[in-house]
């Protein structure tokens, strides 16, 4: 074993004082979010066929797809509960028509819970 000296970290600690911080001053400075990050869901109503696979596999019951058209002429709308969603992306994987895609928008905080229920058509 080596000879033990106290305060061996000082050689590294001292020069660090002159380095730039390792943290980012978000929200005052922009934060780099990877393109593949799992952020807010986007919905393509044209592509959706209303199969409900996304609703069936969502672990948090955070997504609803409803028919706002008629029985013959179907038109779909999605309701996202952003406060329930755990951003796992299982709905995106389950969707057979690629109607759901995750964006890298992470700025979803709100002081009012009602704002977190969003509708997309």
């Amino acid at each position: 074993m080596k000879k033990k000296i106290p305060g061996a970290i000082i050689k590294t600690a001292f020069p660090t004082i002159f380095q730039k911080p390792a943290t980012v001053g978000y929200p005052f400075e922009p934060l780099k979010i990877d393109d593949d990050y799992r952020g807010e869901l986007t919905y393509d109503a044209e592509a959706c066929i209303g199969c409900s696979m996304c609703m069936r596999d969502c672990p948090a019951n955070a997504i609803e797809i409803i028919n706002i058209g008629t029985k013959e002429d179907k038109k779909f709308k999605a309701i996202f509960h952003l406060d329930h969603c755990i951003y796992c992306g299982q709905c995106v994987d389950s969707c057979p028509k690629d109607a759901l895609v995750m964006s890298n928008n992470i700025e979803l905080a709100s002081l009012d819970r009602n704002n977190l229920k969003v509708e997309r058509e």
Binding site: K2, K3, K4, P6, G7, A8, T12
Partner: peptide, 14 residues
Amino acid sequence: NYYVNLALSDATLA
């Protein structure tokens, strides 16, 4: 490797 070194050489830690 630096931490390994530190763990084995710093007297205070030991």
